[in-house]
């Protein structure tokens, strides 16, 4: 097989994602791993795993683009890079037509990106230097509750009520959580409140367009957040097939775009 492929690397603060696409933008291979402390090694592992999944070798890479927090800090198959804001926009525009608002909930930050009809960015917002509404917030709460991260989603679903958290500060929220535990409140109700707090922090960053897309690893692993968002905004939201890969996919599309100009 001699097909040329295009690679996107999304070196996130929490997870590293790689997407491999063909010349038509179809996803052929992908991989996700914890970023850890050796970004270069993690990127290489993800690349090899996704190339293997795609059934191709490094020699078939036509071009590649890196994005994410570590985009400037890693030796990869490319020196080209784009911001994650640009890549999430590109990835979502490929999958959803028309004007959209993208809500990306990542491990370290949130982004709210508005695209016009032609997929051009009209504005974007990132969270302030604060963990509220990010995956880091969820990780902190999981640790405080001593409940594995992967169990949070199902527990939230089991809640019969919701214990709302009043603060947007992660540290203050953790104190509220402990206080509720001391008062014997059901853990599931507290977790639903944690999810609610996350979504609220994101939604208050900016206004939304009619069409809303959710992306990022946090919604990929916590589908209850999607339902809760729909409930809060009063309409269905759009979800990419692989929400966690949106940035890497967008980066791969940029790599492909570059070969067409």
């Amino acid at each position: 097989m001699t097909e040329t492929v295009y690679v996107g690397l999304d070196m996130g603060a929490s997870r590293t994602k790689v997407a491999v696409i063909d010349h038509q933008g179809r996803l052929l291979g992908h991989a996700v791993k914890k970023s850890g402390i050796d970004f270069g090694a993690t990127a290489a592992l993800c690349l090899d795993a996704s190339l293997e999944m795609a059934g191709v070798t490094r020699s078939q890479i036509g071009d590649a683009v890196a994005t994410g927090y570590g985009r400037n800090n890693v030796d990869f198959v490319t020196e080209k890079n784009k911001t994650e804001i640009g890549c999430h926009a590109r990835g979502c525009h490929q999958q959803f037509s028309g004007a959209i608002t993208i809500i990306d909930i990542g491990g370290q930050d949130n982004k709210l990106i508005k695209l016009d009809e032609r997929g051009r960015r009209s504005s974007f917002k990132m969270n302030r230097k604060c963990a509220a509404g990010t995956g880091a917030f969820l990780e902190e709460m999981s640790s405080r509750l001593d409940i594995p991260l992967e169990e949070m989603n199902n527990l939230a679903r089991q809640a019969t009520e919701m214990i709302k958290l009043g603060s947007y500060c992660t540290v203050f929220s953790a104190t509220e959580v402990l206080e509720n535990i001391r008062h014997g409140k059901p853990v599931a109700d507290i977790i639903r409140g944690i999810f609610y707090s996350m979504i609220q922090r994101v939604l208050e960053m900016d206004s939304l367009t009619d069409k809303v897309v959710l992306s990022g690893g946090v919604v990929a692993h916590n589908p209850y957040l999607v339902e809760m968002t729909e409930e809060l905004i009063g309409r269905p939201v759009l979800l990419p097939e692989f929400p966690q890969l949106t940035g890497a996919y967008g980066a791969a599309l940029y790599a492909l775009d570059g070969t067409k100009t």
Partner: peptide, 20 residues
């Protein structure tokens, strides 16, 4: 009160936006 990485990403994304 300053996050260099956030500043860089924001500024780069803003310039990308202007280029679009």
């Amino acid at each position: 009160c300053v996050s260099d990485e956030q500043t860089r990403t924001n500024v780069e994304a803003f310039i990308e936006q202007l280029e679009e």
